[in-house]
Amino acid sequence: MNKKTIYSLEVYEPGDDRSVAIDMKSDTPFGSISVGDEISSPTMRIGDRLKATKIWHIFWELDTHITHKICVSTTSVQH
């Protein structure tokens, strides 16, 4: 049986990898994010844009599905 894969993206507030600025889930993979990319979303609680400073992937498997989580540390982008 093929398990469903759930994709998760967490973008953290500048300088704080415990405070989530963006949390999204999807049934399809997210596009590529690289260090230095600028990120913005209407769902962010802070500022207009952030810059990715570190990216890591976490994978886990449960009986019902597999999860691929992308975590993104950020810094503020000054206008």
Rank of each mutant, 00 (worst) to 15 (best):
D48F: 01
D27I: 06
G31E: 13
G36I: 07
A21H: 00
N2R: 14
H68F: 09
W60V: 00
A21R: 00
G15C: 07
W60C: 04
A21C: 06
I70L: 14
G15I: 12
T75L: 11
R18L: 14
K3E: 02
I39N: 04
M1H: 10
E13W: 01
H57Q: 13
I55S: 07
A52T: 01
T64M: 07
I33S: 03
T67A: 09
E61T: 15
T43G: 00
Y7C: 10
T5E: 09
I58K: 11
S76V: 09
M24V: 09
E13V: 09
T74G: 08
D48V: 04
I6T: 05
D27C: 03
K69I: 00
T5H: 10
V72Q: 09
G47D: 03
S40K: 07
H65R: 15
F30E: 11
K25F: 07
S19F: 01
S8Y: 03
K69E: 14
A21S: 09
I70K: 05
T53H: 04
I33P: 04
H68R: 12
H68K: 13
G47T: 08
I22A: 03
T75C: 12
D48M: 05
N2C: 02
G31Q: 08
G31N: 11
G47N: 05
S32I: 02
A52W: 02
P29F: 04
D27W: 03
D23H: 14
S32W: 00
C71M: 14
L62A: 13
I55L: 14
H68D: 07
D16P: 00
H79P: 12
E61C: 06
S76H: 06
D63Q: 13
T67L: 12
H57N: 13
C71Q: 10
K3F: 01
V20N: 02
L50W: 00
K51Q: 15
I39E: 01
F59L: 05
I70M: 14
Y12P: 06
D48K: 13
E61M: 09
S40N: 12
D16N: 15
G36T: 04
E38G: 02
R45G: 13
L9N: 11
S19Q: 07
G36D: 07
M44I: 12
G31C: 09
E13L: 11
E38W: 10
N2M: 09
P14D: 09
E10A: 11
L9D: 08
E10M: 11
I55A: 13
K3S: 08
V11C: 08
I33R: 01
E38K: 15
C71I: 01
